[in-house]
Amino acid sequence: MKKVVSTAAESLAGVLFDGMTVMSGGFGLCGIPMSLIEAIRLSGVTGLTVISNNAGIDGYGLGVLLETRQIRKMVSSYVGENKLFAQQFLSGELELEFNPQGTLAERIRAGGAGIPAFYTKTGVGTLVSEGKEIRRFGDDDYVMETGLVADLSIIHAYKGDSEGNLVYRKTARNFNPMMATAGRMTVAEVEHLVPLGEIEPDAIHTPGIFVKRIVHVPAQEKRIEQRTTRPKSEREGA
């Protein structure tokens, strides 16, 4: 089956529907599948539940889907850089399921591994544990968290081949690998598309069996959330 398609819109053809759950890879603005997010925006699909470490920033990343009111619910661990997110949440327009970052990562990994639930100390005795099963192991209490799966996972990789074997680079190797395993349908955008066999087997982070479609995005913009620098004179005197 041919996996490589020409455009992001083509990669999502026949996949999107109102009310679906989408996992979106990335950490801050690093390793986010921007071309696929833009294709979702242009499709007009609504009522989305989006599972992502964060919600982008105003006007970029998942922030563009907040602007168009296409997201109904976010399952996230960090939302501090997005004013529109805060406004929609505080007004009751946007639903939020908040997770400690490690818990979110493990929920996704568990979902991809077919594990329905697990216990963790994180969040016991806080708002995070409200309404969840608490069980005692040894001398400590643990809260039960459920695994997460999605109708669609959209991910960004540094390199990929025609069969969907993927390699991530540096911080982009964050939520992308685990989300690739937890989507019923996984679509990847790759910066460098190479022939099958060019990637050393030991270098592969996501095996192609998890990836259904690939789109080549050779010149995607890469942004930095915040950049803090000191004047050159201060650096030299340090």
Rank of each mutant, 00 (worst) to 15 (best):
K2A: 15
S6C: 11
S6L: 12
S6G: 06
T7V: 03
L12V: 10
L16I: 02
V22I: 14
V22E: 01
V22W: 06
V22T: 04
G25F: 04
F27P: 00
F27A: 03
G31L: 03
I32D: 02
P33I: 12
M34N: 13
E38M: 03
A39Y: 10
A39G: 13
I40Q: 05
R41A: 06
L42Q: 15
L42H: 14
G44T: 07
V45M: 03
G47L: 02
T49E: 14
T49G: 06
I51D: 04
G56C: 09
I57A: 07
G61F: 05
V64W: 07
R69I: 00
Q70I: 14
Q70M: 13
I71T: 08
Y78T: 13
L84P: 08
F89V: 05
S91G: 13
S91W: 01
E93A: 04
L96T: 11
E97W: 12
P100W: 15
R107I: 12
R107F: 08
G112Y: 07
A113T: 01
G114N: 02
T122I: 15
G123C: 14
E130S: 04
K132Q: 15
R135V: 10
G138V: 07
Y142G: 08
M144D: 02
M144A: 07
T146V: 08
L148Y: 12
A150L: 09
L152A: 03
I154T: 10
H156R: 12
K159H: 06
E163P: 00
R169T: 05
R169G: 03
R169C: 06
K170F: 09
T171V: 09
T171H: 13
P177L: 08
M179G: 02
T181K: 06
T181R: 07
A182L: 07
R184C: 04
T186S: 01
A188R: 01
G197I: 09
I199C: 07
P201L: 11
D202R: 13
A203Q: 08
H205Y: 01
G208A: 05
V215L: 05
V217P: 00
P218L: 03
A219L: 08
A219N: 14
Q220D: 10
K222R: 14
R227C: 07
R227P: 01
T228H: 05
P231Y: 05
S233N: 12
E234D: 15
